[in-house]
């Protein structure tokens, strides 16, 4: 007997993991960016299944709405260049695969050792009022520091995007010479 929630979980798990694999393995990087967006969307939908609609909506806004679109823009800006030398050598690949396999196995075994599968089902989901109270109460200092981090990152992005006129003229000179 498979009920609707289980079927939805399986489908969303396939979308998230499949999208992640596409992001990692796609030959054309723009398909990888789309796979990444699909993976974000799958995880956000899993949040709905976990009775956390508020977090799920924010996940969609920030990840699918902002991060995935930014990545797509960057892919389009950067795509023309050379991509060869992209993968590491075969020895490093095997070492990486072994490391990742060990990591996943240890994560899964520690999750199962925690005995969470027997945990009781919850009657009512926490509402966004509880989250808001926590964010403005106990976690208020963290919230303020994160606001500073965001402001600093905006300043950093503006500084990076500023085109230095002197450097531009120099680059043009070099291009003419070569």
């Amino acid at each position: 007997m498979v009920d609707a929630t289980d079927a939805a979980f399986v489908a969303l798990a396939i979308v998230s993991v499949g999208g992640a694999i596409a992001a990692l393995e796609a030959k054309e990087i723009i398909y990888g960016a789309v796979g990444l967006a699909a993976s974000f969307f799958g995880v956000a939908s899993l949040f709905f299944l976990l009775d956390s609609p508020f977090v799920a909506v924010f996940q969609i806004t920030v990840y699918v709405g902002a991060v995935a679109v930014l990545v797509l823009f960057t892919v389009m800006l950067v795509r023309e260049g050379r991509w060869f030398g992209d993968s590491v050598g075969p020895t490093a690949s095997v070492a990486g695969l072994i490391t990742v396999a060990a990591l996943v196995i240890s994560l899964v075994s520690s999750f199962f050792a925690a005995g969470l599968s027997n945990a009781s089902e919850q009657a009512s989901a926490p509402s966004f009022v509880d989250i808001g109270k926590l964010l403005t109460g106990q976690f208020a200092p963290v919230l303020e520091i994160l606001a500073l981090v965001l402001a600093a990152s905006v300043l950093g992005a503006l500084t990076l995007a500023k085109v230095d006129p002197g450097a531009k003229a120099q680059a043009a000179n070099e291009r003419e010479r070569s």
Binding site: S16, V17, A20, I21, A23, L24, S39, V43, G85, D86, S87, V88, A92, S93, A95, G96, L97, T99, V100, A101, L103, V104, L107
Partner: peptide, 13 residues
């Protein structure tokens, strides 16, 4: 998902 992400950081340049 974490494993796939770690694999990407380790194996792509």
């Amino acid at each position: 998902l974490f494993g796939i992400g770690a694999a990407g950081v380790l194996m792509r340049r």
